[in-house]
C-alpha cells in the first residue's frame, strides 16, 4: 500500500519547522558539540573553524573534513548541519552521503561558483541558504532551499547587519502584502524572483519556509532582539565558543530566545556571563572582507 517517499518538500521544510524557537550553534569538535547539546542547542553546525577564525586566518575556506563531521555526529543526538561552499554541488553530495541533517550553502566559505548556486532540488538532504533581502531569499527557495537565514556579517560579533537583513526581509514581505494583484508582476520583476513565489508571499504574509537569523549574534539580548524582529530562531556562530564561559552563554542565549519578549528573563540570563567575544565593527571591515555580499 505504502507510497513512502524521502526528501519531499514537506519533509525538508518540516525539519526546519521543528527547529523554530531554537538556537543553532557553530561547533568545531565533539567536545563543543556536547557542550552545545547540554546547553539546549536545537542543532549544531559542524565546521573546522568558526567564522571569526576564518576571518582572522584568511585563505580559502572549504567544507570540513568528513572525519570531523562524523565525530560530531557521533557525539550528539540533535540534528547536525554542515556547510558547503556556494555552488559546490560535490561538497553538498559528500555532506548528503555523510548523512548530515541540513546542508548550509554558505557565504562564510569561499564561493566555488560566482554565477550559480547549487540546484538543491536534486538532493534528499534539505538546504538552508543565506539572504540579505526578500529577492535573494526567494531565488534560493526557487532553487530548492528549505530554510532561509538572514546573513548578517558572520564572525564579527556585530549584530547591526543581522538587524538590517531581518528588517529588510520583513519589511519587503509587508510591502508585498499591501500590493494589488496586478502590481505583483512588477514586484516579481523588481525582486528578481519567480512570480508564483512572490504571489504566495503576498497572500500569506510570510516566507514559504522558516526564516532564521544569523551573523554577529553574541549575547542573549542580541538573540532576543532578532526574535522580536520576527525571526523564527537564531544561528550563533563565533559568539559562543570565543567567549569567556561558552556553556553558560549558550544556555543563556537559549533561554533568551524562548523568552525573547520578557525583559526580566533577558536581564536574569545576561547577568555574570563573563567576557563576550571582542568582535569587529562591521563599519571597519573593508568591502572585500564582507561575507554577506557573497551570493547572487
Amino acid at each position: 500500500m505504502s507510497d513512502t517517499t524521502t526528501g519531499t518538500v514537506q519533509v525538508k521544510r518540516g525539519l526546519a519547522e521543528m527547529l523554530k524557537g531554537g538556537v543553532i550553534m557553530d561547533v568545531v569538535d565533539a567536545e563543543q558539540a556536547r557542550i552545545a547539546e547540554d546547553a539546549g542547542a536545537v542543532a549544531v553546525m559542524a565546521l573546522e573553524r568558526v567564522p571569526a577564525d576564518i576571518r582572522a586566518e584568511g585563505g580559502v575556506a572549504r567544507m570540513s573534513d568528513p572525519q570531523l563531521i562524523e565525530e560530531i555526529q557521533a557525539a550528539v543526538s540533535i540534528p547536525v548541519m554542515a556547510k558547503s561552499r556556494i555552488g559546490h554541488f560535490v561538497e553538498a553530495q559528500v555532506l548528503q552521503d555523510l548523512g548530515v541533517d541540513y546542508v548550509d550553502e554558505s557565504e562564510v566559505l569561499s564561493p566555488a561558483d560566482h554565477a550559480h548556486h547549487i540546484d538543491k532540488w536534486d538532493f534528499t538532504v534539505p538546504f538552508v541558504c543565506g539572504a540579505t533581502n526578500l529577492g535573494e531569499a526567494l531565488r534560493r527557495i526557487a532553487e530548492g532551499a528549505a530554510m532561509i537565514r538572514s546573513k548578517g556579517e558572520a564572525g564579527t560579533g556585530d549584530v547591526s547587519e543581522a538587524t538590517r537583513h531581518i528588517r529588510t526581509i520583513r519589511a519587503e514581505i509587508r510591502r508585498l502584502s499591501a500590493l494589488s494583484k496586478d502590481e505583483l508582476y512588477v514586484a516579481a520583476k523588481e525582486l528578481q524572483a519567480p512570480y508564483p513565489l512572490v504571489a504566495e508571499v503576498a497572500a500569506t504574509g510570510m516566507l514559504p519556509v522558516v526564516l532564521f537569523t544569523a551573523g554577529g549574534i553574541a549575547t542573549p539580548a542580541d538573540a532576543a532582539m532578532m526574535m522580536q524582529l520576527g525571526a523564527d530562531g537564531v544561528f550563533v556562530g563565533s559568539g559562543i565558543f570565543t567567549s569567556g564561559d561558552p556553556a553558560k552563554r549558550a544556555a543563556a542565549i537559549v533561554r533568551a530566545t524562548t523568552f525573547h519578549d520578557d525583559p526580566s528573563v533577558i536581564t536574569e540570563v545576561s547577568r555574570g556571563l563573563g567576557k563576550a567575544m571582542v568582535g569587529i565593527n562591521v563599519a571597519d571591515l573593508p568591502a572585500p572582507h564582507r561575507l554577506a555580499e557573497r551570493g547572487w
Binding site: 500500500m1 505504502s2 507510497d3 513512502t4 517517499t5 524521502t6 526528501g7 519531499t8 514537506q10 519533509v11 518540516g14 525539519l15 521543528m18 555526529q73 540534528p79 547536525v80 548528503q96 548523512g99 548530515v100 541533517d101 541540513y102 534528499t124 538532504v125 534539505p126
Partner: peptide, 27 residues
Amino acid sequence: GTQRESFETDLEVPALEGPPVRAAFIR
C-alpha cells in the same frame, strides 16, 4: 536515522474514519 531517512507515507488509522492518513515522519 538522520534527516536523510525522514519520509512521508500513507498510514492506516482504524480509529479514524475516511482515507489513510498522509503522515510526515521527521527524525
